[in-house]
Write a protein that binds this DNA or RNA. Structure first.
Lengths: 208, 208
DNA sequence: TCGTTAACTTAACGTCGTTAAACTAAATAA
DNA sequence: TTATTTAGTTTAACGACGTTAAGTTAACGA
């Protein structure tokens, strides 16, 4: 195997190949299945070669996470064109749930696992609406707040956004973590999501 | 070291010693810190001796879980004496949150991690109100349902219970997973919990 | 042409969960 | 009492893991 000096682009391609290989294993078999040795085998390198492109295993997982935050935000962006504010919030909730349930392993890594959270490690841009689904939610909620949609005693739009997020996240994360649990006689996820949306909105909105 | 035949009670004591040692490490340093070798060192046995009392590492974690489900249910039981139904629901939510935030590692293992879920592996008794916090929530909600506290179009008490749980769980689990995340400008956990309770109840209850 | 350096591999360390085999002392059977 | 079974435990080992150190090879700059 002849080593060649690589251009920055070629290095980026290798990085992407590593991420893609890791993601594939990750989607199919979860975090623990993502091992340096198996990634290496998949991309045709020795395990140690991965360390030339990523600091350690966590950095690879972080990279997977990053691209999936983008994917989530991307999915939300189409919804943001909906003109009706309330409808838009509801659509966001449904889109978010759809992402969560169709990418449970990603969702776990993104929102159900305590972060190492070295903010500098991430390429993501906070408050950039195109890259941040939470920023999009905040945006709608602030608009609705400005339009006096919410009950008058509610004075903090960001608190409202966080509560909406927590409600939907609660439904999604319980589904991911405990859906197969015989302990609870779970109702349909659709019913649970719907009642959560309906109740929260009724509790938060000004008009019934 | 002289091996002696042990009574069933002595065996149980060893089991408990193992669980206690494991729990101690678990509370301080999380799941990954619970290694067979370190547990063994703590209880004064060789690592392999643990397999005489537990099938594998997961069984030890499961045992930790079980006793903590009991602890949670136990904490709820005092609250169940509150006569006012609505107040009781709110107190349950607060008690639950208090447990979650003061035992984050336990909470993660119990409610934020997909289960292996061999129902026979657990000693817990489903529907036994004294051992099952969810059964307690169901009980109050059913009572409130029978007393026509909820909006008339809501016809499924268990669905209501699951929605309430999901809402509170959403607040707790986001706090545990992402509180240190600089990404979100988090409001106080008290504010978030309060708005969640208030909104959900307003959205679910018949009168205002 | 000759070092330097980038790219990569092999070998190894120390960790982990877990299994197989050996050992030891008590309980039981003769 | 003595021989044998058996419960309790340990030592040794396997195969995996993430990661580091040291080596190898080929292209590049001088």
């Amino acid at each position: 195997m002849p080593p060649r000096h690589k251009t920055e682009q070629q290095r980026q391609e290798i990085r992407n190949a590593i991420i893609d290989a890791a993601r594939e294993m990750f989607i199919a078999r979860g975090v623990e299945a993502v091992t340096m040795r198996e990634i290496a085998k998949k991309v045709g390198y020795s395990p140690t070669a991965l360390y030339l492109h990523f600091e350690d295993r966590d950095a690879i997982l972080q990279a997977i996470c990053d691209t999936d935050f983008l994917a989530l935000a991307n999915g939300m962006q189409a919804i943001m064109r909906e003109p009706d504010l309330i409808k838009r919030i509801n659509l966001l909730a449904q889109g978010y749930t759809q992402f969560a349930l169709s990418h449970p392993n990603h969702y776990r890594l993104m929102f159900m696992t305590p972060r190492v959270c070295d903010p500098n490690a991430s390429i993501m841009q906070k408050e950039n609406t195109e890259q941040d689904a939470y920023a999009q939610l905040k945006l709608v909620v602030r608009e609705a707040f400005a339009a006096h949609c919410f009950r008058p005693e509610l004075t903090d739009a960001e608190l409202i956004a966080q509560t909406l997020w927590a409600g939907i996240h609660g439904v999604c994360s319980l589904q991911i973590a405990l859906a197969n649990d015989t302990w609870v006689n779970w109702r349909n996820i659709e019913q649970r999501l719907h009642l959560m949306q309906q109740s929260l909105m009724r509790g938060l909105l000004r008009h019934s």
